[in-house]
Design a protein around this nucleic acid. Structure first.
Lengths: 403, 403
DNA sequence: CGATTTTATACGCGTTAAGGAAAAAATGCG
DNA sequence: CGCATTTTTTCCTTAACGCGTATAAAATCG
């Protein structure tokens, strides 16, 4: 059971203020006070402390109120981008993406490496990731010493609390302690997180979930993942395990059951054709879905059927997720969206038919195919969230030692 | 965003102490301090306040430590059963159950009314519930004025925050504001909650979930419900809606989909036979499942097939729930358990086959068919939880006004 | 039987943080 | 240049936690 002491109180209120400044751009102390329900006194004390710690900056310009601004002008506060730097990474089967971001989550440098890591030994993958991180940091004009935290987004089932990769399609062995591995290699605090969770927070900060504190995100890539945002925070089930939608069983009786991944996973959609020729080439380059889309446009019957089947299954699964979580919005992301029109309309239609009428109105479906960079940025956001919540100094301008 | 102030701090710590006393029976202050990580000073102050408010009592007997107990003997603290009384109710299609409990959740009186409320007008149902509550209170030797809170457990989709019954199989109309209706009739604060949520908390306090702060409960009655306990608290999705498992879609493609309720709902299992003769009689008395079990034992092929089909479907659904929430335990309750051996083994077997191997070990399945009284008691627990969290006085012995 | 030991609880004090009142700062307007 | 106005800071009060220590209550020992 969590007990409360002044420290917790300070942590909560500091985070509230910092998060308010992050969300609502340049903002004055009074407005923070209004938004957060904290007294102006408290806001003043906390902002003083944040300024003292160098986490925020004052900006005297930009008071965009009524031009007839009388009285003492507001001093606007913004995050100090230079307060910290983090690295976010997204590891996929055929592609690795790295970003370095500032304290605001803005991307400073981006590195995309089209390398197949699928089924490589853990040591090789660690090597590749280490190289990617180092290079991306150098590209940003920084050194690893300038980096506060690294967060690596991995497909599969990840135990966030311990940094354990319980199972991942790109690792041949289970239960890899990747967090420790990378922390040691880089000598920087490293978080390992499910890629779905990363992109969920990414959308919460910068994407399709900016306005909501409750939502669900479904990611359709090599694995089928889920991120649940509840009260502005990621919902991590008991044990902090990430979810794996692909393991959901579709079907009524044992005779006809099949896992969702076998219906709508990347491999299931692309099928056997993808093992050969130009298709295999495209897949190897991480462009399997795009290639499939051109084939579908050219009326490839097999692929069209696969896309339809996958769309239906996902639509039903999403309806079930909505039944369980009742979110106001479902954001659907991932490479499978590249399958195009057939897939999307089938999905939407299946969803519409599967959702119980009584809750048909509560959730809206939103599709988004942001580039891989955004996934890496999401991982960076995961790292930033931890920084935001970590304790820094104490509130208030420390009683300056009298000289 | 929730901000912190001394009031919140106090509320958190008071609750922690109160909950520790409730859970760990007669307990001394030192032990509370050890368990809660609060200093002995704080525990002393808070317990003084709780004693002052009459919520707890001291007991000088019962120090069950090492017999060679030297030093000052510990003073044991227990909840004061008389600190409050609440009413819990479980409303089902053919049966209403009421309990009055003390502050510890112990049942003082229990009333079971075998009345069919199914599809009655809202006014009639309200009348019946009102009568039941009043009579149960009188049976306990109390008057309604002695009751602090009433909680009514309803099947269906309930919005706990507002007390709205969004949809329920026993109400013919949607969106009934039952909380207000009953509050007005009884002139006592009334909570409306999903019956699944009620029995979940009931099991957390007294049943199969006493030792766990994270678990999932699946209830199989007229409706198929779900309760998720996360960190010792009920997980209520966005908007505080309760879940409805019965609305889950089983099946891969649109052609073969069917809702879980159509496979494993009470009506789906009992089938058309239950409309006639002695079976109908049994159903009307709320003994449909028990009757079905005797028929199955007598090798009724139709019913056996139905039970098998339902067991398979539920087993798969439970596996999917575990995939999503990863709880260490799943408690399965409800009248359908009365179907007996065929149903239970099919369910377990289907679960075993449907659960992904990687997480096969994390969750255990537990069956429980406690009597209806426990559901009502669970509703009482819901009411008690609100009382526990509500602010009472201030911490510590108020600085006695100097005379 | 009283002194000593041992343990539990209570009390005083210091620290930290929130919040209210009022002063101080910074600007526009007459 | 003084005054009105709005924002921010300063000072003070209140509340709560934790530390150290005093006190209370029993068991043991001389």
């Amino acid at each position: 059971m969590k007990t409360a002491d002044p420290e917790l109180m300070r942590a909560i209120n500091r985070f509230t203020v910092l998060d308010t400044i992050r969300r609502h751009g340049p903002i004055s102390r009074v407005e923070i006070s209004e938004r957060s329900q904290l007294s102006t006194t408290t806001v003043s004390a906390i902002t003083a402390s944040l300024l003292d710690d160098g986490l925020i900056l004052t900006r005297h310009e930009g008071d965009i109120r009524n031009a007839a601004a009388r009285g003492r002008p507001r001093v606007m506060l913004v995050l100090n981008p230079d307060a910290a730097r983090v690295v976010g990474a997204k590891i996929a089967a055929h592609q690795m993406n790295f970003v370095v971001t500032d304290f605001c989550g803005e991307v400073i440098s981006h590195l995309s490496l089209p390398i197949r890591v699928n089924r490589q030994p853990v040591g090789v993958i660690s090597d590749l990731i280490e190289d990617g991180v180092r290079r991306c940091v150098v590209d940003a004009g920084l050194s690893l010493d300038d980096i506060d935290t690294v967060c690596i987004g991995f497909p599969g089932v990840i135990e966030h609390r311990t940094g354990l990769v319980r199972s991942s399609p790109i690792l041949s062995e289970p239960d890899v302690d990747f967090a420790r591995e990378m922390s040691q290699r880089l000598n920087v605090a490293t978080i390992v997180e499910s890629d779905s969770h990363a992109i969920t927070l990414g959308h919460h900060w910068f994407g399709k979930g900016r306005d909501l504190d409750d939502m669900v995100l479904v990611s359709l890539e090599q694995t089928l993942g889920l991120g649940v945002l509840n009260g502005g925070q990621l919902f991590r089930g008991a044990g902090g395990l990430s979810h794996n939608l692909g393991d959901l069983m579709m079907g009524c009786g044992l005779a006809e059951t099949i896992r969702l991944s076998a219906l709508a996973g990347e491999q299931a959609i692309l099928g056997e054709q993808s093992q050969q020729g130009r298709f295999a080439e495209a897949v190897r380059l991480g462009r399997g879905m795009a290639h499939a889309q051109t084939l579908i446009a050219a009326e490839d019957n097999g692929l069209t059927a696969a896309a339809t089947r996958a769309g239906e299954a996902i639509g039903i699964a999403v309806a079930n997720i909505v039944t369980l979580f009742g979110p106001p919005r479902v954001v659907i992301v991932g490479s499978s969206l590249l399958l195009g029109h057939v897939f999307l309309t089938t999905l939407s239609e299946a969803y519409r038919r599967a959702i119980p009428p009584s809750i048909r109105e509560i959730a809206e479906l939103v599709f988004d195919n942001s580039p891989d960079e955004m996934w890496a940025q999401g991982a960076a956001v995961v790292a930033l969230c931890e920084l935001y919540e970590s304790p820094w100094g104490t509130t208030g301008p420390a009683p300056a030692p009298q000289h």
